[in-house]
């Protein structure tokens, strides 16, 4: 008899516990599992492979830093530093162009239709292949391209300007277009979320447009700005289209190194380079966050919310 009673108790407590495993909880577990499998595991694998010894197409399971030594040779250090510099400069340019544009898009346009059209126009180029989009610059920047023809016919120069194409300048230019929307989107969203009344209140209290931008709009847009920098800079680190098509072999970026290493079947080397990049990205993100938190302690709580 007592066994039956115990069973009954167990059944009751089971019923009571049931609602705790809700749909929401299930979804969280599922998403976390997918994230671990799809994002975390490959990155961990990257770190593991980078410290293994290559043995033909397979690995010898003994720990070594040989891959790092192979990868971190002088010319590759130069490539890494150049990549970081190009990415930093282009990201900054994107911000200087994208921030005013995002503010105008979010607060300057009253017509909803015009806003939608511009947002669509911002995305449309992405239906084109990145290579096709980028190679167009050749016919504009080349020695008998649009710009040089114009300069020659006006008489500003006697010989074509050669640094326009196959140069760092061309790579910078080629990177600006594709990454403009990834800077604009998050900033546009966070500026859109700022209540118009706050901007009016600032003006009402005596602020000029620039003062309102500095004291009200920018602090409230910080989450979007940080997201814009990350969304722009991180994918740009892996871009190989602009440097391949517009660098002319003179402006090698890190993405090309990956191609080279994988083509040479140096998988541990590629993994080591990837690991270095991942660490660099995480370090940069942490530095940005640290700087922001300490620059404006008032925004600390919001940034923490965002990063958690």
């Amino acid at each position: 008899m007592s066994v039956i009673v115990l069973d009954k108790d167990a059944a009751v407590s089971h019923l009571q516990r049931r609602p705790r495993v809700s749909l929401e909880r299930g979804a969280i577990i599922l998403v976390t599992a997918l994230w671990v499998l799809g994002a975390l595991m490959p990155i961990l694998a990257l770190f593991v492979i980078s410290v293994l010894r290559a043995k033909g197409l397979s690995f010898d399971f003994s720990l070594t830093l040989q891959a790092y030594r192979d990868v971190l040779v002088d010319f590759r250090l130069e490539i890494i530093l150049r990549t970081l510099r190009v990415v930093a400069v282009v990201t900054l340019i994107e911000f200087l162009l994208g921030y005013p544009f995002a503010i105008w898009l979010a607060k300057g346009i009253r017509s909803g239709l015009a806003k939608s059209i511009i947002l669509v126009l911002l995305v449309v180029p992405f239906f084109l292949s990145p290579a096709a989009r980028t190679i167009v610059w050749r016919s504009i920047l080349g020695n008998d391209g649009l710009i040089n023809n114009l300069l020659l016919s006006v008489g500003l120069v006697d010989t074509p300007v050669s640094w326009l194409l196959f140069s760092e300048f061309a790579v910078h230019l080629g990177l600006i277009g594709p990454y403009f929307p990834s800077m604009v989107w998050p900033i546009f969203i966070s500026v859109s979320l700022i209540d118009d009344e706050l901007i009016k209140a600032s003006r009402d209290l005596g602020a000029t447009g620039l003062q309102t931008l500095w004291y009200v709009v920018t602090p409230l847009a910080v989450p979007g700005i940080v997201a814009g920098f990350l969304f722009t800079a991180i994918p740009m680190l892996g871009d190989n289209v602009a440097s391949t098509l517009l660098g002319g072999g003179r402006v090698a970026l890190i993405a090309e190194s990956f191609d080279d290493l994988i083509r040479a079947m140096n998988f541990t080397g590629a993994a080591a380079l990837g690991a270095i990049l991942v660490v660099a990205v995480i370090a940069t993100a942490l530095i940005i966050r640290w700087v922001l938190v300490h620059l404006d302690r008032n925004n600390g709580h919001r940034l923490k919310v965002m990063s958690s």
């Binding site: 009344e197 009402d204 005596g206 004291y215 602090p219």
Partner: peptide, 30 residues
């Protein structure tokens, strides 16, 4: 911003990223 009048908005429009004191001081800071 050049009129010496001030508005109390219907939903107050207080700056959420500033403390009470910073909100009150805003016009003086400007």
């Amino acid at each position: 911003n050049e009129r010496n009048v001030s508005t109390v908005f219907q939903h107050f429009a207080l700056f959420p990223h500033m403390s009470v004191g910073e909100n009150v001081e805003y016009s003086l800071k400007l």
